[in-house]
Design a protein around this nucleic acid. Structure first.
Length: 564
DNA sequence: TACAATGACACA
DNA sequence: TACGTGTGTCATTGTA
C-alpha cells in the first residue's frame, strides 16, 4: 500500500503542513511544517508517489497548481460516496460536518453551492468553506476524518464490494485532481474561428451589445410577414402559438419536431430562428467574452455533480457545447488533439454487469449493434439499437414491444438485470453502480404518493414506474461513469509517464464517454496507444474477468470538428 | 423588483 | 418518429 500524507496549506503564503500517516490513517510522527509546500511535495513525490490526503481540491490542490500530485484521497468527494453507501443520504458532507459527528458536536449544514462563486470573488479558497468550528485545527480534522473514512470503508462486509468501493473512492479522487488540472489548462479555443462562424450564421457582431444580430432581425420580419403581418415576439411561445393559430395552424407546442411536420413556410423560418437564436444566446459573443478568453475555454467541472457519478459543469455549459462549435477547438501550432470516445459504452456495460453470455459475445469486439442485429434481428441494425436502448431506458411506447420480447428471449440475463433494477426502484428500494455508488432513496413525496391508498392507483403507479425507469437506467449510467472515471485515472497516470515538461500531453476535455488530449504532434500516436491501454485497464479494474471489450474510437486531428 | 416555474434544446 | 435516462442554460411569463 502506498504511504499516505495528510496535506494542509497555510491559509496565507506558500507554506503548509504535511503529516505522514500509517495504513490505518493514524499519524506517523509529528506534523512537519514546510516553508514551501510546492518544494516539499515535489521532494516526497520524487521519492515514491504517496496518496495525498486533503480536505478538497479547492482548498488544497487548485491553489498549488501547477504542482502535480499523482494520487490522492479527497475527503470532500469520498464523504458523500460513503454516506450514500451507508444509507445516510442528505446528511451534511463537509469536513466540518464529518469532524463534528466524530466529536459529538453540533453538525453544520452544508453551504449552498452558490457559495463557491462568492469565495472566488474574494480571491479566497477560504478554510471556512470546510465548515470547521472556530479554533479547530484543519490538519487534526483532516487526519481524524480520513481515519474514520478508512474505518467506515473497512466496515463494508463483502470483501469484493469493499475492494470495489476503495477503487471508487480512489477513482473519484483522481477525477478531482484531473478536474482541477483541466480547469487550469483549459480547452484550446480559437475565438477568431468562433467569431467567423457566428458572423457567417448570424451576421456581423452587433456594435451595441444586447441588440439582435442582423440575421435574427431579418428572420423575425420574414416570420411576421409569412404569418399575416402582425408583429409578435418569436421568443414568446404564447405569441408564436397564437400567430400560427391565426393562420389555421394549431400547435400544441413550439417544439421543432412538431414544427417540422407543418407544411407552411413559416414553420421552416421558425425552426431556423430558434436554432440561430439559441446559438446566439447560449454560445454567442457574450458567452465568448465570459468563458473563452486568451485562447482557452475554462469550464469549471463538478466531479460527482450528477447522482449517477457523471460530471457536471458550473457555468459555460461545457457539456452542452453544440457540435458545430467544435470548429473553434484547434490544437496549438505543433500540437495535435487526440479525440477518443468509447463506442456503445452503455450496452457494453450492461453486458458486463449482467454477465449475459449471449450479449457478452455480441460485445466481444466490433460494432455491438451490428452483431446484435445479425444474431437476433435479421440483420436490421436500426431495430437492434432501438430495442436495446429501449430496454435500458424503460421505453414502453411506440412499436418497441416485439423488439423487447425478442431481447428477453435471446438475452434473458441482461434483460433480467435491468428489469430487476426497475422493480427495486418501483418498490422504493435503492440500487448501486458496479463500484458501489448508490442511487438516492425515494423522496417523502414519492412515498406519500405511492403508499397512500387514495393515490395508490393511477398517480402512484405513474410515480412508481418513473422511479423504476430511473433505477433501471441508474445501474447502467452509473456503472458506465465508474468505467469512465477509471479510464480517466489510468490515462492521467499514463500521460504523466510520457513527458512531464512543458510539452506534456494533457487532458483538456471530458464528456461522459469521450476524452480529448492536447499533445505535441510527435507524441500523438503514443497518446492514442495510451488511451486504448487505459480503456483496457479500466475494463479489468471495474469488471474483472469479462469477455466484454470496451473499444475506443480514436482520431488524431488538428481540429475537434474533424474527429467524426 | 426579484425569484421561481415553464418550455425549449444543447450534450451524453 | 417524436418515444425512455441524466444534466445546464436561456428567455419569457407568472408569482411573492
Amino acid at each position: 500500500m502506498a504511504p499516505r500524507y495528510a496535506l494542509v496549506p497555510d491559509p496565507h503564503g506558500p507554506g503548509g503542513r504535511l503529516q505522514p500517516l500509517a495504513d490505518d490513517g493514524g499519524p506517523l510522527g509529528p506534523p512537519q511544517h514546510a516553508p514551501s509546500l510546492a518544494a516539499a511535495i515535489a521532494e516526497v513525490e520524487a521519492a515514491g508517489q504517496p496518496r495525498w490526503v486533503f480536505a478538497s481540491t479547492d482548498s488544497a490542490y487548485a491553489p498549488l497548481l501547477p504542482v502535480r500530485l499523482a494520487r490522492s484521497h479527497d475527503l470532500r468527494l469520498t464523504e458523500p460516496l460513503l454516506l450514500g453507501h451507508e444509507g445516510r443520504w442528505g446528511e451534511p458532507r463537509s469536513l466540518g460536518a464529518a469532524w463534528a459527528r466524530l466529536r459529538g458536536l453540533p453538525v453544520p449544514t452544508d453551504l449552498p453551492e452558490s457559495a463557491a462563486a462568492e469565495d472566488e470573488q474574494d480571491g479566497l479558497f477560504a478554510p471556512d468553506r470546510l465548515q470547521l468550528p472556530p479554533g479547530a485545527d484543519p490538519l487534526e480534522a483532516v487526519v481524524a476524518v480520513h481515519a474514520e473514512q478508512l474505518r467506515r470503508t473497512a466496515a463494508i462486509g463483502d470483501p469484493a464490494e469493499r475492494h470495489r468501493f476503495r477503487l471508487l473512492a480512489a477513482a473519484e479522487s483522481a477525477g478531482g485532481l484531473l478536474a482541477a488540472e483541466m480547469a487550469r489548462d483549459g480547452l484550446p479555443w480559437r475565438s477568431d474561428l468562433h467569431d467567423l462562424l457566428l458572423t457567417e450564421l448570424l451576421g456581423p457582431r452587433p456594435q451595441i451589445p444586447g441588440t439582435q444580430p442582423r440575421r435574427l432581425a431579418e428572420l423575425s420580419v420574414e416570420l411576421q410577414q409569412s404569418l399575416g403581418g402582425r408583429p409578435f415576439n418569436p421568443d414568446s411561445h404564447g405569441q408564436v402559438l397564437k400567430a400560427f393559430a391565426e393562420q389555421g395552424i394549431h400547435l400544441s407546442s413550439t417544439r421543432s419536431w412538431e414544427l417540422r411536420r407543418v407544411d407552411h413556410p413559416a414553420a421552416e423560418l421558425m425552426i431556423r430562428y430558434k436554432e440561430l437564436s439559441r446559438l446566439h444566446a447560449a454560445h454567442g459573443w457574450a458567452w465568448q467574452a465570459a468563458w473563452a478568453r486568451g485562447g482557452r475555454f475554462r469550464p469549471e467541472y463538478v466531479v460527482g455533480g450528477v447522482v449517477s457519478g457523471r460530471w457536471a459543469t458550473r457555468g459555460g455549459g461545457a457539456l452542452q457545447i453544440p457540435r458545430i462549435l467544435r470548429r473553434a477547438v484547434v490544437a496549438d501550432p505543433g500540437w495535435a488533439l487526440v479525440v477518443a470516445d468509447a463506442a456503445q459504452l452503455e450496452p457494453r456495460v450492461l453486458a458486463a454487469l449482467s454477465q449475459d453470455a449471449g450479449l457478452a459475445r455480441t460485445a466481444a469486439e466490433g460494432d455491438l449493434y451490428e452483431a446484435l442485429a445479425a444474431t437476433a434481428f435479421h440483420g436490421d441494425r436500426g431495430k437492434a439499437k432501438l430495442g436495446l436502448l429501449g430496454a435500458m431506458y424503460g421505453q414502453t411506447s411506440g412499436d418497441i414491444g416485439p423488439l423487447l420480447a425478442t431481447l428477453r428471449r435471446r438475452y434473458p440475463a441482461a434483460m433480467g438485470y435491468v428489469e430487476a433494477a426497475a422493480r427495486t426502484g418501483e418498490d422504493g428500494g435503492i440500487v448501486r453502480s458496479r463500484l458501489g455508488r448508490t442511487c438516492p432513496p425515494p423522496s417523502a413525496d414519492w412515498l406519500d404518493l405511492t403508499e397512500a391508498p387514495e393515490t395508490a392507483g393511477e398517480a402512484g403507479g405513474r410515480s412508481a414506474r418513473a422511479r423504476g425507469r430511473f433505477t433501471r437506467n441508474f445501474v447502467i449510467q452509473a456503472s458506465a461513469a465508474d468505467w469512465a472515471l477509471a479510464l480517466l485515472a489510468a490515462l492521467r497516470r499514463r500521460l504523466a509517464g510520457l513527458s512531464s515538461g512543458a510539452d506534456r500531453p494533457h487532458l483538456v476535455f471530458f464528456q461522459h464517454d469521450e476524452v480529448v488530449v492536447h499533445a505535441p504532434a510527435d507524441l500523438a500516436d503514443r497518446v492514442a496507444g495510451e488511451v486504448a491501454a487505459a480503456a483496457e485497464e479500466a475494463r479489468v479494474l471495474v469488471f474483472g474477468d469479462t469477455p466484454v471489450r470496451f473499444p475506443m474510437s480514436t482520431a488524431v486531428v488538428d481540429c475537434y470538428a474533424d474527429a467524426k
